[in-house]
Nucleic acid binder design. Sequence first.
DNA 1: CTGTTAGCGCATTCAA
DNA 2: TTGAATGCGCTAACAG
Lengths: 270, 270
Amino acid sequence: MIRPGKMKKITIYDLAELTGVSASAVSAILNGNWQKRRISARLAEKVTRVAQEQGYAINRQASLLRKEKSRVIGMIVPKYDNRYFGSIVEKFEEMARERGLFPIITCTRRNPALELEAVRTMLSWQVEWVIATGATQPDEISALCAQAGVSTLNLDLPGTLAPSVISDNYAGAKALTECILDNARRRFGQPIPLTFVGGRRHDHNTRERLRGFRDAHQQAGLVVSASQIFIDGYSPKHVQQTLAAFTPPPDGADGLFRLGPVCPAAGARY
Amino acid sequence: MIRPGKMKKITIYDLAELTGVSASAVSAILNGNWQKRRISARLAEKVTRVAQEQGYAINRQASLLRKEKSRVIGMIVPKYDNRYFGSIVEKFEEMARERGLFPIITCTRRNPALELEAVRTMLSWQVEWVIATGATQPDEISALCAQAGVSTLNLDLPGTLAPSVISDNYAGAKALTECILDNARRRFGQPIPLTFVGGRRHDHNTRERLRGFRDAHQQAGLVVSASQIFIDGYSPKHVQQTLAAFTPPPDGADGLFRLGPVCPAAGARY
DNA sequence: CTGTTAGCGCATTCAA
DNA sequence: TTGAATGCGCTAACAG
């Protein structure tokens, strides 16, 4: 078991002393601009080797303080514990790394206050961009970031102050509903209205899905009554409660499905 | 649509000028030690208000450069896109926040090189602790961190250089196997050997689960042959290939299950 | 080719 | 009660 002592962290000055070069030369070499400064390859190699040996790690704080660009990109996301957002986050991280950016991600649990706090924290870390995924208050976030000269992008839920990238929840829900209604018709000889469970009443995606659900019914000549709509949140607990209290209406509407998020990463399958 | 201009970020010096106080007083006030410096409440209130109005956000880089503790904690994790690790990450973030720590998380995809690169990056961000979750090379990570005076902890996969927190995969797999063998005996009147699919050959957890699997068979008087063991990785693709090529052995071993991770967050259910 | 210098924004002495 | 001075580690400009 290693007992990490309070060893002072090694700096470019230590490296300079160890190699007999100036600190600025060490900095240039370690940043890869040694050719620009026409430093000899032999020297560059030596410094690099010593840095390696000493386990030198640049101090990002000091480096960023001096530079004007941070190359830090932030993302807020409602949940990690979720295939949809999990894959978004994983891909985001990969893409950021590919572009030489440092991603910082915060899970904000659909909590408006937490979202803003997380964004404020990101701003204090000098992020250059913020991706707000499934944010409950995308415009508040954009406004806060704009104040600091930081660009924002909305993902999954749209806002009005920044570009938004969203799935077509309307078309997805409509296509899915049509498909199930068709199946029901084939099986039972008549169209049977379905029941809508899950989502959040003020959530853009839920509204879009509900709209698709309604339109598909209407198209099939069916009427959707309020008793077929259960919008009580996404959590399994809420849905379970809804289902426990559920009694199929007498008119035969016993088709039941839960409409969850459509996952673009996996490709939409209906 | 907001067009974020290149507005210069506001600093404590700007705030000092705006309020007619010195920068050091602003710093003290914004950090909550204004009473320690016996600054008048009225002044403190004024500075706080102006800071709010101007949307001031402390520059963490500068702040951390000056202080000796960063209160940054790092976690590496193999996958986000996974209920098990997703819930670990979410909880980790929550607990870090509760303690006033700033969590940075990196998804390393069970890639040893990526793991070390991620840890090096974390060190350059001055993390004070690193949690290595499901790391393929926990000891390399611990050594690297120890060199920088950073403490490590292994989660899910054990190491020898740092404390390790792991699930009891042996007991879990044994109990599960026993249960299925018992069911099979009840149903078919005789014990039928099972087939083990998934996992990684050099993975501690896989070995433990396999050990439990074997011991449960032995206890039931069954012999486990190599043809019953398919350890080809965790990815669905690999498992699918294995299953496609799978032909039940003639001795009746057609019981088949996939042994995945045990999820402590959800409670182990057998 | 290489070293010296001057901040980046902040927190912490120390002096007033 | 308060402000001026200092330096954290690094990079960029400039002077050799």
